[in-house]
Amino acid sequence: MNRELVWLFAKISVFSICLLPFLFLFHDAVNETLGPDPIETLHFRTGDWTLRFLLITLTLTPLKLLFNWKFQLRFRRMLGLFAFFYASLHFCVYFVLDLSLSWTQIVEEVPQNPYVLVGLSAYILLIPLAATSTRTMVQRLGRNWKKLHRLVYAAACLGVFHFLWLVKADLTEPSIYALILGILLGIRIFDRVRKQRPAEKSTAVLRTIPASESCLNPVPD
């Protein structure tokens, strides 16, 4: 079978799966099965999916570092854009449904909700990443593209902090996100430290990746 056709099929499948949470939300919203506080439900669910897609996107490189898998890197752009898509829904739920786009409410309430400002900063950091995700932009920005896209680490940290801060008492759920994010970033740091000491011989699981293959390089597809 044609290799390109296999990849196309894989992409369509992953795309459809990523769209499922949205379809479920849409279904529940239309059928009014979002529970007694539908706005809060939409808010929580879009927020959860934003963090999940951010973490999934950040898992692709560690898979390469740990197991030298590469196929998953072809889905990075799509998964990253899905994170942005759910973040945008989350943002819209807050400003359109919760604050009803009312300036009075935005001006009075947003500054009194500090965790909202943290979430907002995370979202603002994601905007240039989404905007520069096209192949043309990747080529045009060259080495700077890589630097720019390191913002995703900051966005993910702010996103998890946003969740941790808003919870009233039970920190279990945000702590799980924080732990996973810590592991994903830890693997990268560990790898970087190893690469800076190339003379050292090791039998560790992590492989030394040549610079040209660095985890942050976009994979053309």
Binding site: D37, D98, E109, N113, P114, Y115, W165, L166
Partner: peptide, 8 residues
């Protein structure tokens, strides 16, 4: 951590 000005 949050405003009390309004309620849903």
């Amino acid at each position: 951590r949050w405003s009390q000005k309004r309620e849903r």
